[in-house]
């Protein structure tokens, strides 16, 4: 790893959404967890507080020395003791053991028709936000993309890597690869899944924004909408895809208001939603307060975790799939 290139400039700590939140102190920060902890292993496991990070990549994006901070912190997580596992993370693992997904599945509209394209909604889309999945699926159909939604596909494994359960993640990958081998194309709504499929599985999965870019959807949405630009879309997958998110919506006729901070983390990633729910919702609450002060009618995002975490603060949040779906 390249931690020894750290010049101690603190750019990472200033960029960190957790350290910048009133409920964030306690987290040692990206420099503490990503640079110092791995270099001083004799100090022992830094324990549960190492998990108090949303994996938003803001620190890595800010680092002038190009240090792979998130990767370094992920490694630290995979070395955590089983005893350090947070209650919320244990729950995720229990769910995986019983149903293959991090949350229990509510979705009923499986489609297993032998299409060449697989729409892979992800655990949140199948468990908590089934309306998101239904809207995205009808949008794909409207765009002429016939697709399956397979009940045999399980969690992509990304959240498991984030909580340090590497073995379980590998297991899930093997199960999914069998399903994916029946398809030519995989489309996701969750940038976390897209990244995982690309980086870990080595398949060229597409995020919904990338699919929408080449098409010409129209929106009947009224009102003024701000964006929540997902971390794993902008700083993980592609900063260009994040730029496209806005242009697709504008081209579709949505009144989009660009606000500073739209690309800051919602607080929902990296296992924080389950692991540190208070800090996670504090970050979301402060972010929603910022959105409210701009007088918008709601927020459009492209990540189920953002939808869930910000939506819980009582503001209207739509996924890009919902914003552009044909009216039912």
């Amino acid at each position: 790893m390249n931690e020894d290139r750290c010049i101690k400039c603190g750019s990472c700590t200033r960029a960190c959404p957790v350290l910048n939140d009133p409920l964030g102190p306690g987290f040692p920060g990206p420099r503490g967890a990503g640079v110092d902890a791995p270099r001083f292993p004799e100090r022992d496991s830094i324990g549960q507080i190492a998990l108090m990070c949303t994996m938003c990549h803001a620190c890595e994006w800010a680092c002038p020395s190009g240090i792979s901070l998130t990767l370094s912190m992920l490694r630290l997580r995979s070395g955590l003791n089983e005893a350090d596992r947070l209650p919320g993370h244990r729950r995720m693992m229990d769910n995986i053991a019983s149903c293959g997904r991090t949350v229990s599945t509510e979705f009923k509209g499986w489609r297993e028709e032998g299409n060449r394209t697989l729409y892979f909604p992800g655990c949140i889309g199948l468990g908590r936000l089934t309306h998101l999945t239904e809207a995205a699926s009808s949008l794909l159909t409207a765009l002429g993309v016939s697709h399956d939604i397979s009940s045999a596909a399980v969690c992509c494994g990304s959240p498991l890597l984030k909580i340090g359960a590497t073995g379980v993640a590998e297991d899930l990958r093997r199960r999914n690869m069998e399903v994916f081998s029946r398809y030519d194309r995989v489309i996701t709504s969750c940038p976390g899944c897209t990244n995982q499929l690309r980086e870990v599985y080595g398949i060229r999965a597409e995020h919904m924004v990338e699919v929408l870019k080449g098409s010409d959807p129209r929106s009947k949405l009224d009102g003024r909408w701000a964006l929540q630009v997902p971390c794993h879309l902008k700083r993980g997958l592609s900063p260009w895809a994040a730029d496209d998110m806005a242009s697709v919506l504008v081209a579709a006729g949505v009144d989009v208001v660009r606000v500073p901070g739209e690309d800051c983390c919602c607080g929902g990633g990296g296992g924080m939603l389950a692991g540190f729910p208070e800090t996670s919702s504090s970050i979301a609450r402060n972010k929603v307060q910022m959105y409210r002060s701009t007088g918008v009618d709601g927020i459009i995002t492209a990540c189920p975790f953002c939808s869930l975490n910000l939506g819980r603060q009582g503001i209207r949040v739509l996924d890009i799939g919902e914003a552009l779906a044909p009216k039912r």
Binding site: T13, R14, L19, N20, P22, G29, R31, G32
Partner: peptide, 14 residues
């Protein structure tokens, strides 16, 4: 009291 790693900008948001 503000921990050393925490940016003061954050502590003085209220």
């Amino acid at each position: 009291a503000v921990p050393p790693e925490v940016p003061l900008t954050a502590a003085f948001r209220s």
